[in-house]
């Protein structure tokens, strides 16, 4: 059973994906697939991390990949709802330098 749930809502060209559970080596491909294949016509992607308990390196790689995709589409990626722990990880790994973060 997957430990990750992704709920997507689309309003015009904005897609919000609420992520719930653990993003680790086994679930990162699921995040990648479910989000990246829903980006047709989307130029505003929001990843809601309120329900994310943990994100591993494999999961963080997916964020880098999505960021590249959105920039190439001349759109933007926003990550919101980060817990303090996960925000610390974003800072330590340099993701805060190029990802748009909303508390």
């Amino acid at each position: 059973m997957s430990l990750l749930t992704i709920t997507k809502t689309q309003e015009e060209n904005k897609l919000t994906a609420k992520i719930s559970g653990r993003v680790d080596t086994s679930t990162a491909p699921q995040l990648d697939n479910e989000v990246s294949l829903s980006l047709d016509g989307i130029d505003d992607l929001v990843l809601d991390f309120k329900q994310v308990e943990y994100i591993s390196s494999a999961g963080l790689r997916v964020l880098v990949s999505l960021q590249k995709t959105m920039i190439a589409k001349k759109g933007k990626l926003t990550v919101c709802g980060l817990s303090d722990d996960i925000l610390d990880i974003f800072k330590a790994t340099g993701l805060t330098d190029f990802l748009e973060i909303e508390k």
């Binding site: 080596t25 591993s56 390196s57 790689r61 340099g94 993701l95 330098d97 190029f98």
Partner: peptide, 17 residues
């Protein structure tokens, strides 16, 4: 121990930057 794919993640960050 570090997390799986940490080297690749670091590579991705460098590639991106």
């Amino acid at each position: 121990f570090v997390e799986p794919e940490s080297q690749l993640f670091y590579r991705d960050v460098l590639m991106y930057r």
